[in-house]
């Protein structure tokens, strides 16, 4: 990533924060000013899913090429994904307290992020229980593929079992996203939302590069000691 891109990310997110907090958003039934959370909370959960995907992607890369660099990147993506899913959980929980009256009530979205946290937790537990590097790399890659394959079943299960209060779910007035995925957001709000997604994705990629470099440094120093 070039230096100018990093500066652009910095300015971009600064603008998103400023516009997101200051721009008038009009009347939104049931949410009011709390609707501004969409600029900051939704990117966090998007990044936790993106990181989950990237972790699996680099895992498959390792299984194909048997190059430790892929494993380091896979673990890096998982680590960042874990951080972002914790942030998504906490911000969502704070919001839920003031919109639904409790911090946690097993809403389908809350359940899915919980499962994601469990998978990240299991992934790191598996990694720490394997000492041989090659074995750790291939087994954790296999686990992330299995997890990635089974998790989408929730998309089919959730509407059968529970009904959602989350904006975009079936049980709530759907001011922002309804169940068929249609947007009910004002155009101005939508642009800020997309800009925020792009900005935070850029930030994620930058953090990913820094963390991957540290992982590779660590790997190089291990090679030298051998």
């Amino acid at each position: 990533m070039k230096t100018w891109m990093k500066i652009v990310i910095g300015i971009w997110i600064t603008a998103v924060i400023a516009i997101g907090l200051a721009m008038p958003i009009g009347y939104i039934p049931g949410l009011g000013a709390k609707a501004r959370i969409i600029y900051f909370h939704v990117p966090m959960s998007w990044l936790s899913v993106l990181a989950f995907f990237m972790s699996m992607w680099y895992g498959i890369g390792y299984l194909r090429k048997k190059d430790m660099k892929y494993d380091i990147k896979s673990a890096t993506a998982a680590e960042l994904g874990f951080v972002f899913s914790i942030l998504a959980t906490i911000t969502g929980s704070i919001w839920a307290k003031f919109s639904w009256g409790s911090f946690w009530n097993w809403d389908p979205r809350e359940t899915s992020i919980f499962v994601l946290l469990l998978i990240y937790g299991a992934y790191f537990a598996l990694r720490s229980a394997l000492e041989i590097e090659e074995r750790r790399a291939s087994l954790s890659a296999v686990y992330s593929v299995v997890a990635f394959v089974t998790v989408p079943f929730f998309v089919f299960i959730m509407p059968r079992i529970m009904f959602s209060l989350h904006p975009g779910g079936g049980g709530s007035p759907a001011p922002i996203l309804n169940s068929s995925g249609k947007m009910y957001m004002e155009a101005s709000m939508r642009y800020v939302f997309y800009a925020s997604l792009i900005g935070f994705t850029g930030l994620y990629l930058w953090l990913f590069q820094i963390r991957a470099k540290i992982g590779l440094l660590n790997y190089n120093s291990l090679l030298e000691n051998e």
């Binding site: 499962v115 469990l118 998978i119 937790g121 299991a122 537990a125 598996l126 229980a129 394997l130 000492e131 074995r135 087994l139 686990y143 299995v146 997890a147 089974t150 998790v151 079943f153 929730f154 299960i157």
Partner: peptide, 20 residues
Amino acid sequence: KANSKGTLYPVLSFPILLPL
């Protein structure tokens, strides 16, 4: 192939089995 097999097993299985 891992250490601490007994505790790791439910930890790894639960998120995979949860949809089922």
